[in-house]
Structures are given as structure tokens and as C-alpha cells.
Design a protein around this nucleic acid. Structure first.
Lengths: 143, 143
DNA sequence: CTTTTAAGTAACCTTGATTATTACACTCGT
DNA sequence: ACGAGTGTAATAATCAAGGTTACTTAAAAG
């Protein structure tokens, strides 16, 4: 399976913002930590803004910061804000309707996919951004 | 998100084989139901063979059939046999090691991803191929 | 009010993965 | 031996994502 790395980048971005504890961070600085282009970060931040997770200012001395405490942001929210479509794909061509299986397999698959995706999101919801930061800080201390 | 549809196709293929209850089905016939190329189906069948889910014969009058009862095949097995890599991706470029978050975010993400993927597979494991067939037959009866 | 900083955004390129397609060798039953 | 059908390689066609450049807009600072 091949998926986008938007979720990984979003968690990274928010972790940096949480680490800065309220100081605004520019897209260029974030891009430096993630090692990518500032425009990629800005596109990601737009999605996070719409989800109400970050608060971004334009102009001189601007940048982004979390709009909530890291304790109150869970990973499922982050996932949903940056990953628009479903994890599972079906073929672009429709199955053969003349086949007894083909004519209704898509409905059966949809039930399966929805359930699996929900299970995944419930698991993600168990972890907060604060948990992630705690692990990052612990790991940094060990090193 | 961009994912493969191998899992969807694999479930479809196995559902057709289950529907045929032991009769061998050719890759061309399967391709007809799924509306794709026989070679795609053969490649999928190779993975399902390795996982011990199907039994394929070559030569005249050949084809594939399930190697076990549909009741004893669950969707997590199917998923693992055809989807090699992990569901979640990280950026191709490594994060900036000089950043306190960047230098250890990958480890933190790995824990998160592994947990979420396990949750998803546990959910898939709850459904068997027999369950899928039952839904397909019920849906066909209604129509 | 001008300058400067940085976000918003459009346009385009590059890359990589996946499906699709063609072609051919190999097996096995008849 | 023949024919049906799988195994497999090579290649093309698609397509989405990330990356890049360039320009516009907003807001603070002087």
C-alpha cells in the first residue's frame, strides 16, 4: 500500500509547534526541521487551520502556533484533517455486473473498509500530541 | 491518499472462488468478473498461493480454487498476503537531525503507525471470507 | 507611507508506484 | 503432438504526490 506522508508531516509540524509552547514558528523554520519546501508546509498548515488545530498570522514577525493545548489534540483529529480520502482503494473500472459476485462486491467491501478505518482511527484517538511530545523529550534526554 | 487496490481485488477474487465451491476458475474468467487483465489476476494469485490461500494448477483445464474453507480464511490474512508495505508513509527525506523534534520523531511515529495498523488488522481479522460470501448472496437475493 | 517579512496561491516539473498490455516460455491433460 | 492456461519479463500508460519557482497579499516596523 502506498500512502501520502501528509499525516507524518502534520504530526511532525504540530510536535514542533508544541515544543515551542506558544511562540510563533514560520513555515520556513518548520520546513527546515522536516527537511522539505516551505510551500509544502504552508499547504499542510492550511488544512490544520481549517481543522482548528493551528492559528496562523501573516505579515512581518508572523508564523503559526497551536490553537489548543497539546493534551487536547489527538492523532485521529490530525489524521482526518490532512488525509481526505479513504485508506482503501477499489479498482477504477467497475466490476462485471453480470457476475453474481461482481454486481455487489463493492457494497460488501465498503462495509469492511469503513469498519477497518474506524478501528484505526479509534486507535489513533488514544494518543494525544502531548503524549508524542513526552516521548520526544524522553528520547532526547536519553541521547 | 493514493493506495493500491490489490486488497479489494484479492477479496473479490477469493469471493468468486468461494462462490464456485471448489471448481477451478481460470485467470481469464476471474479477470472478466473484476474487469481487468488476466495477468493482473495471475500476479495476485501468486501472492495468494504463497500465503497458502489458493491452489492453482497449470495446463489444460486448469485454474485456481480455495485451498481452505471460506470460514477459515479471514480478511487480515488476505490483507497481509497482498499488501506488502505499511499503510503509513514517512517523507523520503530524513528530518533535520539538529532539531530536537526532528532527530527522534521517526521513532515516535513508528510506534504510532504500528499500533494503528495492528488495530486495523485486528478489525479485519474479525471477518471471514464466509461472512463476505453470505453478504454477497443476501444482496443478490434482495435484488 | 514605505519597506520588509512571511503567508496564500497558482502553475508547472519530477518522481515513483500501480495498473495495463503484449509477448513468449513452460506445463499438463487429452 | 496439440491446445489450454499459468508463469514471467518487459514495457507503456496513468496518476497522484511532493517539490520548486514565482507572484500576490497581508501586516508589522521603521
Amino acid at each position: 500500500m502506498r500512502t501520502s506522508c501528509r499525516f507524518a508531516m502534520a504530526v511532525h509540524v504540530l510536535a514542533v509547534l508544541a515544543y515551542q509552547e506558544g511562540d510563533r514558528v514560520t513555515s520556513a523554520a518548520l520546513a527546515g526541521s522536516i527537511n522539505t519546501n516551505p510551500v509544502i508546509i504552508r499547504r499542510l498548515l492550511l488544512a490544520l487551520q481549517k481543522a482548528g488545530l493551528v492559528d496562523t498570522c501573516r505579515g512581518a514577525g508572523a508564523g503559526s502556533r497551536l490553537s489548543r493545548s497539546p493534551k487536547r489534540i489527538n492523532l485521529a483529529e490530525i489524521y482526518r484533517s490532512v488525509e481526505a480520502c479513504e485508506s482503501f482503494a477499489t479498482p477504477s473500472k467497475k466490476p462485471n455486473n453480470a457476475c453474481p459476485v461482481g454486481h455487489c462486491i463493492l457494497e460488501a467491501l465498503d462495509v469492511i473498509f469503513t469498519s477497518a478505518q474506524s478501528a484505526m482511527e479509534r486507535d489513533l484517538a488514544k494518543t494525544t500530541l502531548a503524549d508524542v511530545i513526552a516521548r520526544v523529550k524522553a528520547s532526547g534526554a536519553c541521547k
